[in-house]
Amino acid sequence: MTALSSPYAHNNQSVRKVMLQVQLAALPALLAHIYLFGYGIVIQWMLAVTTAIVVEYVMLTLRGRPVLPFMTDMSALITVTGLVFCIPPEAPWWIVVSGSAFALIFGKHLYGGLGYNPFNPAMLGYAFLLISFPVPMTQWTMPGEVVGYTLDFMHSAQVIFMGHFDGNSLDMITGATPLNELRTGLSQGVMVPDTLRAHDSQLPWGLNSWAWINIAFILGGLYMILNGTISWQYPLGFLGALSAMALLFHAIDPAVYPPLSFVLLSGGTMLAAFFIITDPVTASTTPRGKLIYAAGIGVLVYVIRSWGAFPDGIAFAILLMNIAVPLIDQYTQPRVFGHSR
């Protein structure tokens, strides 16, 4: 198969390379996760990848597609990696398996495979888990700084596959995330500053483990921006809008609305900013569209976090904005050279 038409040159970029770049950029966060929360995430990640391989193979065969090129495009890897970061590290094994399978089957293959899915598969899988299994999805393993130790590989495996380790119940090591605590605190009449004060961290600069994971994501994200893997418009729009909301409402009532630093460095903020909303398939593609799309997610995340039913609104915010993408693209077409608007 020779290319008939020019150009006969290429910059040697490929879908696989792009995906591997993303995977590489997620490495700092993965390492930080292992250091702070233990090996649970590694087991989850391996489970997810195994599921992905099986699901991809079965689905591609069923759909009558060439298996090898599409297996090796690595897009499924990125999907499940994004999902794994959203799942509690010691969640039961069937959570990540069903979530990954759902994400790939319903989020990708049923829409026609890579490039044809309107919704972010990882977030679709996450939303599916969040709605179907709310309890295990909110039981986060506490980081080492809180519990005093992290589980090693074998103990994590025990918890994930059997629900306990050395006869100890899972409840021993799980708790609420800072976002969750804030929410429960507010519902019990505890003001935000008090909740935050009660959980001062021993880690450098007083930042808790979740904040450090977010910082690791920022590192990976900056790397991707610099080598051109992702557009800068996504993080800028998202973080800009989220910051604006946080600053505004914190200024209005600091007792109820957390400060900017907490908003930016809690939950999946940075994961979303650099790894999830930048998925080009489901995002707006025009320069202004990217900003609008990302800013929309930022606003929605803040809204869901502050007034919605879920502690972290990233999945729903992204899925909602996914719906709006065709509309945004339609109205943000750039001015073509030589045309007045």
Partner: peptide, 13 residues
Amino acid sequence: EMQMPCIRCGACM
């Protein structure tokens, strides 16, 4: 290289 589906990455744009 094998032609893959468009992933809407926007590099062309």
